[in-house]
Design a protein around this nucleic acid. Structure first.
Lengths: 244, 244
DNA sequence: GGCGGCGTTTGATATATGTCAAAAACCGTG
DNA sequence: CACGGTTTTTGACATATATCAAACGCCGCC
């Protein structure tokens, strides 16, 4: 269990990580980078369906997603659930837990995934010494607030077609930012999970996707999606695809 | 303009501020408190309808509300607007702007109000030296993320009655936390603004409030509200009133 | 203190989305 | 490769909320 014996492939090497630019501040020196790497203690693997954390669990660490796909959700006691986000490689999750030293939502792997653990106390300590890291941490949290404003706008004022268009365009952008196709991709979540994110029933999600297909905006077959008319989708809700 | 000539009543004295416990970390020493007070450079007054900041404006400072009431909103280019929050004394606003050094929403005074300006660069610098302040800043941002999760749940899965009940109970709690009545208060916002917050049309807000009155849950006349049956309101959406 | 405009209430009607249901397609597992 | 359970699609129908409209009341300003 001593760190000295951690297997090489389980050690973290941020400096060589392809996600570096998504997940880290860009302007660290080599020495600063090494200090950060020492902090990122371990990598963990999760199978599809595994919980990364559960609501109510004690908070110790943030997590950087290295590979895979997660959803985060809050549950209402009567069983209703709201998906608060779908997270992919390079994104940091767990920030909601800082406020009460306790996780306030569940994080579930939607496919086999790996995460880097960032012990928060040590992250705070290091960010006191590295202003660039401190600023980066603040920006990540702020970005999450902005993202949620966008979802509030979506949930509060958009129609089903607009919500789905925004959702697909957002996924497209994020896949593109990671070097994948912006037009052809696999959904990792069910219609139900999409509905729980967008405030719609699964039947409405299904119908709306079918409708998009009928009018030639997309091709969809189960989880396989191809965007055929990006402009057409964008026109559904002004131009701003914004970060969802 | 020199700080030396700032009038005494415009200088900030956090240590004597009645909102201290809402807005500041609790465990600062006197010396640390003085350093923080020096940072909180100025107090500004706003009239009802004034903008504290606008979307797109450059970001320099967070603001602590000392007296009064604000709303924050994001605008969609087609004119739709989503109110992202109603903020009252002791709350900190502007954190969405950190991510891009630019405000991403408007903040508008709903009544005559005063705010304390917190220059963010200096706040970051000081929080590198005062771990308690650093932790507090992180908690405030995290709390905002949690609050927004709650609103996503509300917007994504609650019916109009549940949304209004949650809204009234949330206001009630926050007034109570500030020493005001939990049952009798004035709304500071219009039905339209409530609707833009809760994802409802103003007519639906009005009808739902009228209905609450008919069944004896509240008494409402224009902006004056009295909660007559707190338990009854709570039963609308489980028990969790949560921070909105 | 009266006028005018905004905010609110209430009614009648329209509609987007939810609900219920059944069949079809897909997927992991034995 | 077949089976059983889950996911998806599609249809018919129900309903919560939006839309349109008119009257009323409150409040600030002249």
């Amino acid at each position: 269990m001593s760190k000295a014996f951690t297997l090489p492939q389980l050690r973290v090497a941020c400096s060589g990580c392809s996600l570096r630019e998504l997940c880290l501040p860009v302007d660290l020196t080599d020495e600063e980078m090494r200090r950060l790497e020492r902090l990122v203690s371990e990598k963990h693997a999760y199978r599809r369906g595994d919980y990364l954390y559960r609501s109510g669990a004690r908070f110790d660490s943030l997590y950087a997603i290295r590979t895979g796909f997660f959803k985060t959700q809050v549950l209402h006691e009567d069983g209703r659930e709201q998906v608060t986000g779908f997270q992919m490689a390079g994104e940091i999750i767990g920030m909601d837990a800082i406020s009460n030293d306790m996780h306030t939502c569940d994080a579930v792997a939607l496919e086999d995934s790996e995460v880097c653990e960032l012990p928060f106390n040590r992250l705070e300590a290091l960010s006191r010494e590295l202003p660039a890291l401190q600023r980066h941490l603040h920006k990540i949290m702020s970005r999450e607030i902005v993202r949620e404003h966008g979802i509030m706008l979506l949930l509060g004022s958009m129609r089903a077609e607009e919500r789905l268009a925004a959702f697909l365009l957002n996924l497209s952008q994020r896949f593109a930012a990671r070097g994948y196709s912006a037009t052809v991709f696999q959904l990792r979540m069910t219609r139900q999970e999409i509905g729980n994110y967008l405030g719609l029933k699964l039947e409405t999600v299904s119908r709306t996707l079918s409708h998009f297909q009928e009018v030639g905006l997309i091709s969809v077959r189960n989880k396989a999606v191809e965007i055929l008319d990006m402009k057409g989708l964008q026109s559904f809700f002004g131009v701003a695809a914004g970060p969802l």
